[in-house]
């Protein structure tokens, strides 16, 4: 008995290998085509899961190309957990090394964005945050504060116009992508995650804030990238979209 499932698994994901021995139909014939039902089920189920998870990649590549990519990917990276909601985590780095598609440089960032949108969708609900609390502290105390962002908030750094590309392929009549780097900030006010474009200085600021830096430290990093960095713009974006869970002001 031991080992039957290993043989099964190998044959399921390798179309070149024979069906395991000892499988039969009602007449005792070898069940070759019958085994292929399982083989087909596994490939179709995993490919469908990827199509559902990466709709913009499907649109960018076309159905046929995407299915070819999926066939190679599912054999190299079958799911490592029954939580199919997160399947495809290995796809961005797989795309980075996938020579046939290397000429479309932004594909892996699009995959990262689609993964982050799903993570945000399933994240814990954001707590209600009273923005008036921010106005109640002095500007000096605010700059010395650290922030806890709401669970659905995600940041996808990119040197491509990532949010424009995403919008162009999901929103009817959206403008063509501009030739400007955009990282994606994902927020979720209620249930639907929404990507927002951040310029490099804003992305550098948010990376700092997310990792627990004070607003003053984050401001320094952002200004090194862009002297005109405006704190109010990015802070109001976070407030407007329910992205702040809490903030901590040091005791005097």
């Amino acid at each position: 008995m031991t080992g039957m499932q290993s043989l099964f698994r190998t044959a399921l994901l390798d179309p070149e290998s024979a069906a395991p021995a000892g499988l039969q139909d009602a007449q005792g014939n070898p069940a070759t085509k019958r085994f292929d039902v399982y083989r087909n089920n596994v490939t179709v189920a995993l490919t469908e899961a990827l199509r559902t998870a990466f709709p913009v990649l499907v649109k960018l590549l076309g159905d046929q190309n995407f299915d070819q990519l999926a066939r190679v990917f599912v054999r190299a990276h079958p799911p490592n957990s029954p939580l199919m909601m997160h399947y495809g985590e290995a796809l961005p780095s797989f795309l980075d090394d996938f020579a046939p598609l290397a000429h479309i440089g932004y594909l892996s960032d699009v995959a990262r964005l689609e993964l982050a949108l799903r993570k945000s969708y399933h994240a814990a609900d954001p707590p209600s945050f009273d923005a008036a609390r921010l106005g109640a502290v002095s500007p000096e105390a605010l700059m010395a504060s650290t922030f806890l962002l709401a669970a659905p908030v995600q940041l996808v750094p990119s040197r491509w116009p990532l949010v424009d590309i995403w919008r162009f392929n999901t929103v009817e009549g959206a403008d063509k992508p501009r030739a400007t780097p955009q990282s994606a900030l994902i927020t979720r006010a209620a249930f639907d995650p929404e990507p927002h474009a951040l310029d490099p200085a804003q992305a550098a600021w948010l990376t700092q804030v997310k990792s627990g830096a004070t607003l003053a430290q984050a401001q320094d990093t952002a200004c090194a990238s862009d002297p005109d960095f405006d704190l109010t713009t990015v802070l109001s974006l976070l407030i407007q979209h329910n992205a702040i869970a809490d903030f901590t002001t040091p005791k005097e």
Partner: peptide, 22 residues
């Protein structure tokens, strides 16, 4: 049925033999 083998989840309901051991 079974669907996980080693670290891999195969996303299908796979069959098993009916023996004393299983």
């Amino acid at each position: 049925a079974w669907s996980t083998h080693g670290a891999e989840f195969l996303d299908d309901l796979l069959p098993l033999p009916y023996t004393d051991a299983t």
